[in-house]
Design a protein around this nucleic acid. Structure first.
Length: 647
RNA sequence: GCCGGAGUAGCUCAGCUGGUCAGAGCACCUGUCUUGUAAACAGGGGGUCGCCGGUUCGAAUCCGGCCUCCGGCUCCA
């Protein structure tokens, strides 16, 4: 028989030849490096027999992410093998490869708990199996036989998986993979053997619900990662260590940006330096919003429960709301600005000529998030969004959604963010008719397609009142967080009986677009801190420059420089402490302040400063006025100017 | 909320199996030094060892409950 190779050549093989045979026929080097074979587009074991006339490609350990994914999945099986040996009676569930590694979920016998301290022993056992070079043996069996095997072993989760496969997909056979004494239900493919997993590291243990369902058993998940060689593994562990240094919670404390306290869990206390960043972002939002037709409004924090009943929050969102009552009236603290804005819109009559109306508000919100979900600035209970609601006609929807996306990308461009786009569709808990959802989902899809944007679809992840386009960024450890969102809403206008008078002199229902671009200022700043590793561009830096007198007798000259710059609206301080210059430079460097301006005898007389740039060093002497102009330019353009180290 | 882990001076952390274990560095305060591009020197103050309860002659150390934080899960900006 013949198979075709990626370079177009044909390879003659005996009937019934496998991927391994094909690799061997091409060359011994490839045979050694081979991990799996792509056969008509599908990745299969090397042992799989090839069919005549098909196209094949041998996957080797130099195939990048795909190869890593394969051995990480292998490693998950070895993990399960080690755990079943070390903890008799353990029940296994599933263990896939994930971005950056793999995990396996187990149910340990009653009374056995696993912690990080148990990982080294498990890892050691895994390494023994890797050294032994056990093969991954595939066997296809009838579902009856598979059920019998796993029932006999008391592997209830596997039994459930097979039963579901039979029920949902009508399968009659399933594949089993055996490495050593461990047999797992698995679709495959797997590499040729455990010795191909070069190096493995178990990283953490965590709880995870069986099938991601919070009503079901909490399993114990063990996370790990694997690479082809120890060097790559260690580089990755080193990278993770480095990433921890960028953690916004750590930098926020070190740089004096914000604090958290037990007295208000999930709520940041913003220090002056963090507030300076916050204010710059709000200013940016206003500056960009104004020419785009946004008008800022201010609405209350607390609303009668009636308003939340009208909006649907009382029914669909109440468990996330903080409520209170006074004089026998019940109130809810706002978790969103939309009902307030809808109420505001309804307070007068509108002509179609006036639409779209775009109300923005950096409103303060409270959401009663589950305690276990709180996470620094990235997940809080009290936050503010760069929120706005656009009230427009049906005909204006496409243009307005497109304008929101333009605004969003213009904003991210300033920070050099590379966001990923997700379209979230109707959730189970929702208000509004299916027709409304059809219309809204189509409108968003059309807007994305019209701009040729790439996106993934999150079925069922929409807001309860409408579908949304979400814009995501990852933090220093690669966790994805939603920043911006553009949500289309046909329900709220109906619930609030919103109307405008059309050209036909009849009443029409406007459409509401909810949008936040940075998302919440809290989360955005958290991501920003990690993105810049605390080394903010000049326009965002809480302190843009610090003036350093060489000795006490230069204090007045230094203070004068500070006053002149601060008088021009720049965030400049003077470090007049009687500490050594080296000491003060060190401390201000650690604070990652963009500029230090040294003033001594040489400079004081001439009205200059010796400029030191963070991360660069001494960049030479400048007249105070020239430096001020530079700082002003960097602030107003929101772009740092290039610098070169002096001499 | 759920699973696992942690909680000692402002910060980072030491303190093994209960008995001078309440410590170190940095920070802070006082004094001296008056400084040229990443840490001057000396002295000093500071903690009911997260909170509540229990075991014990005796608890930072053991047990229970609660709070907060960390890693995940569920949920979400």
């Amino acid at each position: 028989m013949k198979v075709r190779l990626p370079d177009g050549k044909e390879l003659e093989l005996p009937e019934g030849a496998s991927g391994a045979d094909a690799a061997a026929a091409i060359g011994p080097g490839l045979a050694r490096a081979a991990l799996a074979v792509r056969h008509d587009g599908q990745l299969r074991d090397l042992q799989a027999t090839l069919a005549d006339g098909t196209e094949i490609e041998i996957l080797t350990d130099s195939a990048g992410d795909e190869a890593l994914e394969l051995i990480r999945h292998d490693a998950a099986h070895v993990l399960a093998e080690a755990v079943t040996e070390l903890y008799p009676g353990v029940k296994v569930s599933i263990g896939p490869a994930i971005d950056g590694g793999f995990y396996y979920d187990f149910e340990f016998p009653e009374g056995t708990t696993i912690s990080d301290e148990d990982l080294p022993a498990i890892q050691e056992r895994m390494e023994e199996h890797m050294k032994a070079g056990e093969g991954f043996e595939r066997r296809d069996v009838g579902t009856d036989e598979a059920l019998e095997i796993f029932r006999a072993e008391g592997q209830d989760y596997k039994v459930e998986l097979i039963e579901d496969l039979i029920r949902d997909e009508g399968v009659e056979t399933v594949s089993l993979y055996r490495n050593g004494e461990f047999t797992d239900l698995c679709r495959g493919p797997h590499g040729p053997g455990t010795d191909r997993i070069g190096a493995v590291a178990l990283q953490s243990v965590a709880g995870a619900y069986w099938r991601g369902d919070s009503d079901r058993t909490m399993l114990t998940r063990i996370y790990g990662t694997a690479f082809f060689d120890r060097k790559a593994l260690e580089a990755e562990l080193e990278r993770l260590e480095q990433a921890r240094a960028r953690d916004h919670r750590r930098l926020g404390k070190e740089l004096g940006l914000f604090e958290f306290s037990e007295v208000s869990p999930g709520s940041a206390f913003w220090l002056p330096k963090g507030t300076a960043i916050w204010n710059e972002l709000v200013a940016l939002s206003r500056e960009m919003g104004e020419p785009r037709g946004y008008q800022e409004v201010k609405t209350p924090q607390l609303y009668d429960a009636e308003l939340w009943k009208t909006s649907g929050h009382w029914e669909k969102y109440r468990e996330n709301m903080f409520t209170t009552s006074t004089e026998e009236r019940e109130f809810g603290l706002k978790p969103m600005n939309c009902p307030g804005h809808a109420h505001l819109f309804s307070s007068r009559r509108w002509s179609h000529r006036e639409l779209p109306v775009r109300y923005s508000e950096p409103g303060l919100l409270h959401r009663n998030e589950l305690s276990g979900t709180l996470h620094g600035l990235l997940r809080v209970r009290h936050f503010a969004q760069d929120d706005a609601h656009v009230f427009c006609t049906e005909e204006q929807v496409a243009e307005e959604v497109a304008a929101c996306l333009e605004f969003a990308f213009a904003t991210y461009g300033i920070f050099g963010f590379d966001v990923s786009i997700e379209l979230s569709t109707r959730p189970e808990q929702r208000i509004g008719t299916d027709e409304m959802w059809d219309t809204a989902e189509k409108a968003l899809t059309d807007a994305l397609d019209a701009q040729g944007l790439e996106y993934t679809v999150n079925e069922g992840d929409g807001a309860f009142y409408g579908p949304k386009i979400d814009l995501h960024m990852t933090d220093s450890l690669g966790r994805s967080w939603q920043l911006g969102t553009v949500q289309l809403d046909y329900s709220m206008p109906e619930r609030f009986d919103l109307a405008y008078t059309g050209a036909d002199d009849r009443e029409h229902r406007p459409v509401m677009i909810h949008r936040a671009l940075m998302g919440s200022y809290e989360r955005f700043i958290g991501i920003l801190v990690e993105h810049y590793a605390g080394e903010f561009p000049v326009w965002l830096a809480p302190v843009q420059a610090v003036v350093l007198p060489i000795s006490d007798r230069h204090a007045d000259a230094a203070a004068a420089v500070r006053d002149e710059l601060a008088g021009r609206g720049l965030r400049v301080q003077a470090d007049l402490r009687s500490e050594s210059v080296g000491r003060r430079i060190r401390e201000n460097e650690l604070q990652k302040i963009p500029y230090m301006l040294v003033v001594g005898d040489e400079e004081a007389g001439k009205g200059t400063v010796a400029v030191r740039r963070h991360g660069v060093g001494d960049v030479g002497e400048m007249a105070v006025g020239d430096f001020a102009a530079r700082l002003e330019e960097e602030s107003s353009t929101r772009r740092d100017l290039p610098v070169e180290a002096a001499g």
